[in-house]
């Protein structure tokens, strides 16, 4: 069965479009699998997903339950293997539940920012001329702000909180997608199949949504994977400054900032959540790097 499927996937003369496409994905997977670092990245990302999904099972305590009798216990204490924080809350449990918050932020940004970028980029590329000029100027202006600083200024308007942090991050994250989408649009704009659809009487909206955006998706998706690490770091930075997710939610950046007060005496309170952020964003970086090598052989440098 398995062998049959592999030959089907590897068939050099695919019988259907689906077979061809699946075959391409399979070959890509084979190439990705040869890159050990990318496999490590994929494992980390999958582990994060599993952690978030199984949080109530993996957790040993209630993430909000305070136990002032068991404050600031060091790691490897029986019952709290990663130790406890200043309210006696179990750090392992909070890390596990924090995975959900991180994924929530990442997923929301990964949905909103590329959509905005795709719309701006394809519209600019498709219409060209003045529209292109204006939209790309706006894109450049947003690119001109350092992301974290613009996000800080936006949060100062919107007020702190998880949704506002997501909004601020998304509003700073879309310009690169607009650039990518515009470049892709320019290459397909003059294609015959677009002219054919236009001759059939399709409006610009329909052409962009139905025929241009799908062509831009692959390159945008690679960009998203590569960007996720940056999103995690900015979200953690906002949380650390107290402008993102608010206490008592177990957001990793926020946990670091609460551990900062006793860094020199109880090092683990700040260290462990930072390790979690580091590992997860390293995972996304490794995976994105590997994906880029697979999907864009030019940049692999081999």
């Amino acid at each position: 069965m398995m062998g049959q499927m592999m030959t089907w996937l590897r068939d050099p003369n695919p019988a259907s479009r689906m077979q061809a496409r699946l075959g391409q994905y399979y070959l890509g997977w084979l190439r990705l699998r040869r890159n050990p670092l990318a496999v490590v990245g994929l494992t980390i990302v999958l582990a994060l997903l599993a952690m978030a999904a199984l949080a109530p099972v993996l957790a040993t305590h209630d993430p909000f339950a305070q136990d002032l009798g068991r404050r600031l216990l060091p790691p490897l204490t029986p019952g709290n293997w990663l130790g406890t924080d200043d309210f006696g809350r179990d750090i392992w449990t909070r890390i596990v539940f924090g995975a959900r918050i991180t994924l929530y932020i990442v997923a929301l940004v990964a949905i909103t920012a590329p959509v905005l970028g795709l719309l701006v980029g394809t519209v600019a590329g498709y219409f060209g001329g003045v529209v292109d000029l204006i939209l790309m100027r706006i894109t450049d202006i947003f690119l001109a702000f350092p992301r974290l600083i613009l996000a800080l200024a936006l949060v100062s308007v919107l007020g702190p909180g998880i949704e506002n942090a997501v909004l601020a991050i998304a509003l700073t994250a879309w310009p690169p997608y607009a650039r990518v989408a515009r470049a892709e649009t320019l290459t397909v704009r003059g294609a015959d199949y677009i002219a054919a659809v236009r001759l059939q009487g399709a409006g610009s909206g329909r052409i962009i949504l139905g025929h241009v955006i799908p062509m831009c998706l692959p390159s945008v998706i690679i960009r998203v994977t590569l960007d996720m690490a940056g999103v995690i770091l900015i979200a953690a930075g906002l949380g650390f400054l107290g402008l993102g997710v608010q206490p008592p939610l177990p957001e990793w950046g926020l946990m670091i900032s609460s551990g900062r007060k006793f860094l020199f005496e109880q090092w683990w309170v700040a260290t462990i959540p930072g390790l979690a952020i580091f590992i997860v964003s390293l995972g996304f970086n490794l995976l994105g790097d590997g994906l880029r090598d697979v999907l864009d052989p030019r940049s692999s440098g081999k």
Partner: peptide, 22 residues
């Protein structure tokens, strides 16, 4: 290099303080 991209800079700072100063 990838570690440099993946590390929260504020955490790296705290760890540096902990190790090299503390």
């Amino acid at each position: 290099g990838l570690m440099g991209y993946s590390m929260p800079v504020f955490w790296l700072g705290l760890m540096g303080l902990l190790l090299f100063y503390g």
